[in-house]
């Protein structure tokens, strides 16, 4: 193996590790926003490292240019779709996870049954939603004012 191939192999191994850790985060994190965090950052960095390793191995050629284009596109497109997913979840009223919601009783002693139930149902009931809206009046979440309710 030449020196360039060794460097490329190191980059590919690093990228594979980061992508795998991102997948583990998507499976194991407690709510949608934390999973989005793992997926958005882990996948974007992981694919960039793997493709960078392939670029180093390939060198300057047609294939290298295509790899640069793919990495560049994924950097923009992955960030955009992550932002769109987070925005859709926030506009729907999905409640972000806090350590108090944790079902594992390792933060503040034993959890009550209500807390345990709420941790497994991370969506807002009517009063919780009103409280959240009252606490976030500084943030204008209603972007264009046209709320279509077909219920």
């Amino acid at each position: 193996m030449s020196a360039l191939e060794i460097v490329g192999t190191v980059f590919i191994a690093l990228g594979g590790f980061v992508m795998f850790m991102g997948a583990v985060g998507v499976v194991r994190f407690p709510d949608f926003y934390t999973r989005l965090h793992a997926a958005g950052k882990g996948d974007t960095l992981g694919q960039a490292l793997v493709l960078l390793g392939l670029i180093v191995i390939t060198g300057v050629s047609n294939d290298g240019l295509k790899l640069v284009l793919i990495a560049f596109f994924i950097f923009i497109l992955n960030s955009t779709s992550t932002h769109a997913l987070a925005r859709a979840a926030w506009l729907a009223g999905l409640k972000p996870w806090t350590p108090a919601d944790s079902a594992t009783p390792q933060f503040e002693g034993q959890m009550s049954e209500v807390d345990r139930r709420d941790a497994f149902m991370p969506l807002l009931a009517g009063e919780d939603k009103a409280a959240l809206e009252a606490s976030t009046t500084g943030i204008d979440v209603d972007l264009d004012g046209k709320v279509e309710d077909d219920a």
């Binding site: 990228g15 992508m19 991102g22 997948a23 998507v26 949608f32 999973r35 989005l36 997926a39 996948d43 974007t44 992981g46 694919q47 793997v50 493709l51 793919i70 994924i74 992955n78 779709s81 997913l85």
Partner: peptide
């Protein structure tokens, strides 16, 4: 939807 998006990115690699 997030999972489908992640699988798509992994498919590209």
């Amino acid at each position: 939807l997030l999972g489908v998006n992640v699988i798509g990115t992994k498919t590209i690699v």
